[in-house]
């Protein structure tokens, strides 16, 4: 019995390797490009994070844990990372809260309206993130922001709404930027739902609310969650929006790494921040992805 089990892979092996060789050969160009533009710079960044740096001596290619030690002990970095993930999490939650119903309503619209509103939602993707974020800054930025001026002249608010250099501002602007990704992800999940399924539930006596809660939501949940993963990782590593709204005062991981590289010129410290952000994101994304796949195995197939 055990002999039979043992020999089976041996029989299979020659066939496998004869298939594997051309497969490797064919993917070699892509693999080389992948290594050239992604793996090598990444490895160099990781190595850089262990180098030394001084105001006058510049970068010294030695192996020390100075940068990592600084990040681990200085509460400034802990606060900054918490802020980064807090903003990303809030952005994700709000995007899911608005994006999922948006996609559902969109999916129920008929023909012409559907394509019009789909264009309205996806259209902003064609405009640069910088332009979109500057738009928010123009509306709410300080005393001269258009909205602030209007609201104050109407007497609705006494002092201008604080938007620039606040986490609220960053979250609002990020939600705006990230919304299309959430809508698209939920939309894709909705396309796989049988259009008759709501009628089936209706005929069994379910109320509209029950149908959404017990029939529709469980089926689009994988879409919401994969959209959440995209939005979370994009928001946590976002640069343009936090840079414009948060500026120097309210730094997140990406803007801090940028400043270390280009302003302080402390490349090793910037590398350490970037590597930490990357590792944390990879862990979070891979972890939640595995969780989702296990939880929703029957819906995913």
């Amino acid at each position: 019995m055990s002999g039979a089990i043992d020999t089976a892979p041996v029989h299979a092996a020659p066939g496998d390797s004869s298939h594997a060789r051309p497969a490797w050969a064919l993917s070699a160009p892509a693999l080389m490009l992948f290594a050239g533009v992604l793996v090598i710079p990444l490895v160099m960044t990781v190595m850089l994070s262990f180098h030394d740096w001084g105001q006058y001596k510049g970068i010294e290619p030695v192996f020390i844990l100075k940068n990592w030690h600084e990040i681990a002990t200085d509460p400034y970095y802990a606060e900054m990372f918490w802020r980064t993930f807090r903003i990303a999490l809030l952005t994700t939650l709000i995007a899911a809260l608005f994006g999922a119903p948006e996609a559902y309503i969109l999916n129920r619209m008929s023909g012409r309206w559907k394509s019009l509103f789909l264009l309205l939602i996806l259209g902003p993707l064609l405009i640069s993130v910088v332009a979109r974020t500057l738009g928010w800054a123009l509306l709410f930025g300080g005393n001269n922001g258009l909205m602030n001026k209007l609201l104050m002249s109407l007497g609705l608010i006494g002092s201008p709404l604080r938007f620039m250099f606040t986490e609220t501002g960053m979250v609002v602007a990020l939600v705006h930027v990230m919304m299309p990704f959430m809508v698209m992800s939920v939309w894709a999940a909705l396309q796989r739902v049988d259009p008759q399924i709501e009628n089936a539930a209706l005929s069994l006596g379910a109320s509209p609310l029950t149908i959404i809660r017990r029939i529709v939501l469980p089926q689009i949940m994988p879409g919401v969650l994969s959209g959440a993963i995209i939005v979370f990782s994009l928001s946590a590593s976002a640069f343009a929006t936090p840079a414009i709204i948060g500026g120097r005062r309210l730094k997140v991981a990406a803007t801090l790494a940028y400043d270390e590289f280009l302003n302080t010129l402390d490349w090793p410290l910037g590398a350490a921040v970037a590597v930490l952000l990357l590792v944390a994101l990879v862990l979070i994304v891979v972890g939640s992805n595995a969780l989702i796949e296990r939880r929703y195995a029957e819906v995913f197939r």
Partner: peptide, 27 residues
Amino acid sequence: PAKRGLGIVFQSYALFPHMTAAENVSF
């Protein structure tokens, strides 16, 4: 429709994919 008390079998079956056979019938 929810109050008509009719039983319907759809061409595509329209089973609830996230529920087991028993849960589908029990709904």
